[in-house]
Each structure stands twice: as C-alpha cells, then as structure tokens.
Design a protein around this nucleic acid. Structure first.
Lengths: 254, 254
DNA sequence: CGGGAATATTTGTATTACAAAACCAGGCGC
DNA sequence: GCGCCTGGTTTTGTAATACAAATATTCCCG
C-alpha cells in the first residue's frame, strides 16, 4: 500500500489529499461500516508509510465532510450515512464510484426533474441582460461545437448560466454539483450521439422562453428536455421503485 | 484574539475546530475577498497564539469545504464563491450569520417549494410500512406536544421521515440541511404561535395522502403547507425579485 | 458486589526540522 | 539591450517527537 506515496507525487497531488481520497473512498465502499471504528492513526501511518501529520490532516478533511468524528481515546468513528455530506464534490464522486451506477443516475435525474424546471422559470423572471447574454453564449457554443466533448462542455455551461440567472445562491452549488456529476458520468450517455441533435431545439426552447421572460414556457421546455434525457438514460419517469434497492451496490463488503 | 483558545476549552471544543469556525466565518463575512490571499500560517499562529499544527488542520477543514485552496509559496487563496460548498452544514451556518437573513430565508423557502411537494409525492409512492410508521410517530409527537420547542422538534422529524420514505438517498442530506437550517432560524418564525394550530391539519393532510399512496394529493398537501409557512415568513410567492439583492448583507466589509 | 481511583490507550496540541514548490531577481550569454 | 537560466527566498508540505487531555478499562478497596 505504500505505493500511494509515489502515486501522489507522480500526480502532483498533495499527500494528505491523496490519503483523504483513499480513506474516503474506502468508507464509501463500506469497508468500514457506519458506527464502526477506523484503524487508529498509528496504523494508517504504518499502512501508507507516511507521517502522522499527513494522516491527521486527511482525517480532518474527512471530518469536515461529515464522514467521521474523532474523539480522544476512542478513535475515529464512521458517522451514520445520513450525516455524510453527500452533496460534497468528493463524497459524491466516491459515492458514484461505489454505488450502483444506474440507480445513482436515476436518483440524480429525479433531482433534476424537481429543480431544473423551476430554475428555468425563475431564470425567466429574474435574469439580467448580462446573464441572458451568458446563456446565449453557451447556447451558441453548443450550436458551433463539432465533437461530443465540446458539446458537453457548453451544455454544462448552458445549464449553469441558467442557474446563475435564477438568482438563488443556494441553488448554484447544488446545480453545479449535479452538472459536474453528470459530466463525470459522461460516458454513460456518450454512446447516444444522434440524440444530441434532437436535444438542440429543446435547449433553444428554454433559451427563448427565458428571453421572453415567460416562466411557464421555460418550465415546460425544461421538462421536455428532461423527458428526453430521461428516456436516454432509461430512468424511471415518475417516482418509480428504486426505493428499496438502496443497498444494491453495497452488499458485498458488509 | 488569543481568548479563542480559552473559549474552545470552555466549550469542550477542539482547538482546530474552533479555528476553522472562526476563519470560516471570517471568509463568509468577506473579510477576505474571493481570490485574495489569507494571512500565512505563521501569522495565524501569531494571531490566535496556537501552534502551526492546529492552524494547518483548520486550513485543511476549510479546504475540504471548498472555501480555500493552498499551494506552496503562494499561500491559502480564497476560492471563488461558486466553489464554496454552501450545502455544507457549517458553511451554511456561517452564510446564515453573514447574509441578509430575510433574503436567505426566502431562498430557502424557494428551494423547499421545489423539493418538498415532489418529495411528498415520492414518499406516497415508495414508502415502506416502517417508514410510514415513523412518519405517523412524528405526527403524533406534533399532536401531543405542548410547547413550541417540542412541536418544532417533531415537525423537523416529520419532514425528515417523509424525506427518508421518498427513497432517494441524494435528497436526504439536502432536506436534512434545509430542516436543520430552518430549526436554527427558529426564532424568526417563533413569534407566530397561533399559526401552529392551523398547520396541524395541513401536516395531517400530507400524512393521509402518503398513507393512501396518493402522490397527487401528497403534492397538493405539501404545497398547501408551504404556502402557509411562506405567508408567515412573508417570502415571495413565485420567483419574486430578490435577484440583484444578492449582495445585501455583504457591502460593509469590501 | 459496587463504586471509585489508577491505568492505559488514543487523539489533541506543540515544537522543530527539513523538503518541495514557485515566485523573484540577478547574472550571464547572445 | 534583451532574454533565458539559475540561484535564492518564501511559504506550504511532510516528518518526527514530546507531552497534554480525555476516556474506556481494570483493578483495588470498602
């Protein structure tokens, strides 16, 4: 396991950061069950061949993300699942890597269906001229893009611009998270190239609705776009099961 | 400033945790603008009269929350606002303390209006017997409660139980955040005692809709409850302005 | 048998030293 | 004179060690 040290160096990554990544991923893989104790700091030092300083800083990062709590004499205990900050970039990435990916995607899709139509409506009402220009710029980028990767970049930018125009600061990081998560799982949808061309007018509908400050139309257009991507992913339309399959990707290690 | 050391001890709080709290709050108050550099570690040690270890661990916690990024020779730089993990418990608390509170509340209310109706609908479709029992227990707690504080505890529990029954793990921490934030700003709504009695049948409507597995009714009932609390707070109904007042609580320190 | 004190273990904090990274300036060659 | 390159300097990154604080466990004594 001491190879991690060199791996970190090679990537130009900081050591404590690598440690946090690795330990965090382990927790999300449930190698250490919620409520159980992690190896103590000395053992981590031994496992990775690093100093206690680095281990402690990694521990503090994980604590800041709600994954663990440390107390003297006790050790670091894995906090219950509902305490982890799943909306953290890193935690979400680890979760994505550890869970059933289709189930995860459908959950994300569910969230998008709740948020994006209303966000589009808000953007239609609240946008400034500058914000509208940003949205239009992103859309133009989508139109002009030649390859899929390029298109995706502008797609994300488009949605983020709408988010910014909605004028609710709390929504921005949430949407940011969803969009970046989606672009990470890019390969899942990458195989459906021809659908891109179908999606373009759907995006345009949102844009024009926002430009005309018509919230109802914006909401409808956003729903239409979501219905399209939803069918691509094959996600459940309206609150379908998926409820008790929570543990789908977690069975093996417990 | 060295009093913080004793303050931490008095509270039984860890030193690095207190440091993170204090520095984090400062950043949210924009004492250090996004993109600017924080004092270096030596200076923090001096300011608080603590060791570099404690400062560094605090720094790492803030980095984990997306507030700052540290690089050798450069120092710790405040990241742009959109990178901040506003959905983190602590960050949200600092934000709440630093921003215009009415504006903040209306943003939260906006999010609730997006999420809670759909969550209730999902809960109606997906809930298990156990989850329903939990919701009913929380409701019973609300009915039996005598004082406001007690009622609030069960109120939060009620909403969390519904959230859990929705069967979307991503939503749980988000709702958890919203509910706990709301109970923190408790005093804002605490003065409207008589409204509580009006809210009880609204909660009951949600419960029965879920019990009968009727998503449409659950959605409607949740909307009705939100409309009620929204009128109490005096929040904008439908995407009202509030857009450009982003900076309301931030002017003084820049 | 029960309660309380001693003990041991683990994290928390402090201190020191050195390594690595990156900006900055000064010198050297062209 | 201009530009590249090299060395120095500053700041974080990592390491190692020592001690303090907290608390679970154990053991002794009443």
């Amino acid at each position: 396991m001491r190879k991690l040290k060199k791996a970190a160096k090679a990537r130009g990554e900081r050591l404590h950061h690598s440690l946090a990544q690795d330990i965090g991923a382990r927790i999300l893989r449930e190698e250490y069950a919620p409520g159980s104790l992690l190896p103590n700091e000395a053992e981590w030092c031994d496992v990775y061949g690093v100093s206690r300083t680095a281990v402690r800083e990694a521990i503090k990062m994980l604590a800041a993300k709600g994954l663990i709590v440390s107390r003297p004499k006790i050790g670091s205990r894995v906090r219950p699942r509902e305490a982890w900050n799943l909306l953290d970039r890193d935690v979400l990435a680890w979760y994505w890597a550890a869970s059933d990916q289709h189930h995860f995607l459908s959950n994300v899709q569910q969230m998008r269906e709740m948020l994006e139509p209303e966000v589009a409506a808000l953007a239609a009402l609240n946008h400034t001229a500058l914000q509208l220009a940003t949205i239009e710029g992103a859309f133009k980028g989508m139109v002009d893009s030649t390859n899929i990767a390029d298109w995706n970049v502008h797609d994300v930018r488009f949605h983020l611009a709408i988010l910014g125009a909605a004028g609710n600061e709390l929504l921005v990081p949430l949407g940011f998270l969803i969009e970046s998560a989606l672009s990470n799982m890019f390969e899942f949808t990458a195989s459906h190239n021809e659908d891109v061309r179908k999606a373009l007018p759907l995006h345009e509908a949102i844009l024009t609705a926002i430009r005309r400050r018509s919230p109802a139309a914006a909401r409808r257009a956003a729903r239409a776009l979501l219905a399209d991507t939803s069918s691509v992913i094959g996600a459940p339309r309206k609150g379908r099961p998926a409820a008790k399959s929570r543990n789908a990707g977690r069975r093996r290690s417990a």
